[in-house]
Amino acid sequence: MFSAPFDKPLPRQGDPRKFAQQGVHLAGYVPVSQLPRVRDLVLEEEGQVRVDLMFGISEEGKLVVQGSAAGDLVFTCQRCLGPVTLPVEADIGLALVRTEMDAKQLPRSMDPWLLPEEGNTELFPMVEEELLLSMPSVAFHDHPCIDEDLLSSGEPVEPEPAENPFQVLKQLKGSPKK
């Protein structure tokens, strides 16, 4: 079984089907700069994502990849608009399929990874997709990062009683008919 440490880059390409049949374990890092959709959402692209992938065969006899991708990414805080570093962790669990029909036949517990008919495929887009699914919808500091006074618009104002729109109808109804 092949295994690589996290201090080396993850291979960009490989044959996931062969990896699964051979029980290959891949571990390494992917530079954020190599993940274009993630790069568009973060402030700094100098970081790295640690990736650990174990290829194999499931109990159902399906070729699968399981593992994780994790890294500290720098986002824009939606409160103060400054940088905020947040951990992003993705659990990876995919069945390797060739066609959409194969994907539809998977158990509900398995998500498909649609691969080309034969040969090598890019690994980075799969890692990137799993990271995107795990990113926070809104990034912000876990501590107060702006002045509390900025959150207030002044003294509370008592709402004026609303005029009843049916008051006119009530008056018309109560008036004598001519």
Rank of each mutant, 00 (worst) to 15 (best):
F124P: 04
E155W: 12
R108K: 14
M135C: 06
D102S: 05
E158N: 11
N120S: 09
M101H: 08
Q105K: 12
E160T: 08
P112Q: 02
L106I: 08
D149L: 13
D111C: 09
V138G: 01
E158G: 09
V127R: 03
G119N: 04
F124R: 08
P156R: 11
P116N: 08
D147N: 13
D147S: 13
I146W: 02
P159A: 11
L123V: 05
D149F: 13
E158W: 11
S109C: 05
P156C: 04
S152R: 13
F140Q: 14
M101V: 11
V138R: 00
E160Y: 08
D149Y: 13
M135P: 02
L132P: 01
W113Q: 04
S134F: 09
G119M: 06
S153M: 13
D102N: 06
L151F: 14
D102V: 03
S153R: 11
M135L: 10
V138M: 03
P116G: 13
G119Y: 05
E160Q: 12
L123I: 10
H143E: 09
E117C: 07
S134I: 02
M101S: 12
P116T: 10
E130H: 06
E122H: 10
A103F: 07
H141I: 06
D142S: 12
N120H: 07
T121I: 06
L132A: 02
S109T: 14
S137G: 09
D149S: 15
L132I: 05
M101Q: 12
P112Y: 01
D111P: 09
E118H: 10
L106N: 01
S109P: 05
E148A: 15
N120C: 08
P156K: 08
P156H: 10
K104E: 14
E148S: 12
E100H: 06
M110T: 05
V138N: 00
K104C: 05
S137H: 10
P125Q: 03
A139I: 01
P156E: 14
S137M: 14
V127L: 13
S134C: 07
P136M: 01
T121N: 03
T121A: 09
M110L: 15
A139D: 00
E117Q: 11
V127E: 01
M126C: 07
P159Q: 10
N120G: 05
L114G: 02
E129G: 01
M101W: 08
S153E: 15
L106F: 05
D111R: 13
R108W: 15
M135E: 01
E118P: 07
L114Q: 01
P136C: 03
L114C: 02
L131C: 00
M135S: 03
D111G: 14
D142Y: 11
M110Q: 08
L133N: 03
E118I: 07
H143M: 07
L131T: 00
L115P: 00
E117A: 13
E155V: 12
F124L: 13
D142L: 10
L106V: 06
A139W: 00
Q105T: 07
V127T: 04
G154P: 00
L131V: 03
M110P: 03
E148D: 11
G154W: 07
L114M: 08
L131K: 00
E117R: 09
G154M: 08
L150V: 10
G154I: 07
M126V: 11
D102M: 05
S152Q: 14
E129P: 00
S134Y: 12
K104A: 15
V157D: 15
P136W: 03
